[in-house]
Design a protein around this nucleic acid. Structure first.
Lengths: 189, 189
DNA sequence: AAGGGCATGTAATTGGTTACATGATTTG
DNA sequence: CAAATCATGTAACCAATTACATGCCCTT
């Protein structure tokens, strides 16, 4: 059960409501842990019951009121303990790769299309992550920031996300190209 | 529910028992879909009930008997249909990245250790995948094989797995190095 | 007036993980 | 003779997904 720890780690950046946390997950944490809003609301409720986070009401005039959460002492302790646990091997799951695995036994047309869509989705994500990284490091150069900046954790995980997306895009384009070429060949028989 | 499709795609390579399928998953399919043996046994039972795979008993003398499965016509049709579905975005989950996200707020010692362990685990996987790729392409050069080989599906997904592991190893080592340097700095204060 | 963003959930279902169980045979 | 490999599951629990639900405010 590491969603709780992903939530705790995300809340280290400051106070968030469930809604804001969902946004933060989408851009940053989703690089290594995906969750939909419903999960986050449920998890925050559980964490509060267990005293690992504390919520407080924020009254807003122009928008609905919200509850924002911060990590408690007990929450920090739990993260500290979690950091010493052995990690499970990282796992990927990707529908599209299942389709590529079967690519030479099914109609490749739709698979090629999806590979190209994925590639451009990855391009979007690459640009977004670039912006996030620039925002995180401020004016400092990357090396400088990594040596002396505070809060390098999110920066390091974003770097991982970035390289993942870049590799993913390259692989998608290459694979689409290969399948397209093979398609042309077969048509010529 | 794409485990079923991952199973169908894996069974395109030939007949497998549950046990053999579990092995095949560990080396190949795990690059994009992880599953433990219990899941596979359960899924094969379901798929057989639905007529997407067909099992047959193989009597062995020196080893326990086993049931091996092949994809039926209906199974192929289901894969064909699946290939045209829109794909969900690929998702990663990784405990260790959760820890890195929190790295500047918890004791980094154990995190650094785990990053280095991961890096050497990735090294092992990289070597293994290299062997798998060589075996799949036989005597042909890679380019040649990708143009004209049959069964390029598994080859392409292994290439993705390989580049994932390489990036993962590099990132782990770089991150461990950065955290170590910061640790030394802080100690010197 | 419609659509999108803010804000928070409940309920039902499906999928995944963990622990347990069994028993033969082969290899070191 | 102990450990690993082959071979197949059941049961209990935990996590994730999907569908549904509500309501306000702001922009177009």
């Amino acid at each position: 059960m590491a969603l709780r720890h992903a939530v705790l780690a995300a809340l280290l950046d400051g106070e968030y409501s469930g809604y804001q946390l969902a946004k933060a997950f989408d851009i940053g944490v989703a690089n290594f842990w995906h969750a939909v809003p419903q999960q986050l609301y449920a998890e925050l409720t559980k964490l509060e019951k267990e005293g690992l986070v504390a919520g407080r009401q924020v009254i807003q005039e122009t928008r609905p009121n919200k509850r924002v959460f911060r990590v408690t002492e007990a929450g920090h302790a739990e993260l500290e303990r979690f950091a010493t646990d052995v990690s499970k091997p990282s796992s990927i799951r990707d529908d599209l790769l299942v389709k590529v695995q079967a690519a030479d036994r099914v109609d490749t047309g739709p698979v090629i299309e999806q590979l190209e869509e994925r590639a451009s989705a990855a391009d979007g994500k690459i640009e977004l992550l670039g912006q996030v990284l620039r925002r995180l490091r401020g004016d400092a150069a990357e090396e400088e920031f990594l040596r002396t900046g505070d809060r390098v954790g999110p920066y390091l995980t974003c770097l991982r996300g970035l390289s993942f997306e870049q590799e993913h895009r390259d692989w998608c384009l290459r694979t689409a190209g290969i399948l397209r070429e093979r398609q042309a060949h077969h048509a010529g028989r």
